[in-house]
């Protein structure tokens, strides 16, 4: 899951839901906004920067591990 909502901070205002271009967020019948379709996330970070309460963070399984070489950039040659 690439985004995480800090429930201590979130007031379910729905700003993330408005800003998401991929519609990964939904509001539950109880009013809670949550990332229902995280696999559709394209890491655009619009929800993170748009959250007025700074309640959303991006999470990466191997944060900080960088590729050993950037052969990807030149693999064609």
């Amino acid at each position: 899951m690439p985004v995480r909502i800090d429930r201590q901070k979130c007031d379910n205002c729905g700003r993330c839901l408005e800003r998401c271009g991929m519609d990964i967020y939904v509001r539950s019948s109880g009013g809670t906004v949550f990332p229902r379709y995280p696999r559709k996330c394209v890491d655009c970070t619009l929800c993170v920067s748009g959250c007025p309460l700074h309640a959303i963070s991006m999470i990466f399984p191997h944060a900080g591990s960088l590729p050993a070489t950037s052969g990807e950039a030149c693999h064609a040659h």
């Binding site: 890491d43 655009c44 990466f60 591990s65 960088l66 590729p67 990807e72």
Partner: peptide, 10 residues
């Protein structure tokens, strides 16, 4: 940017 084993569209 490349991080966490992939390329980000950013």
């Amino acid at each position: 940017p490349m991080a966490a084993g992939r390329v980000f569209s950013c």
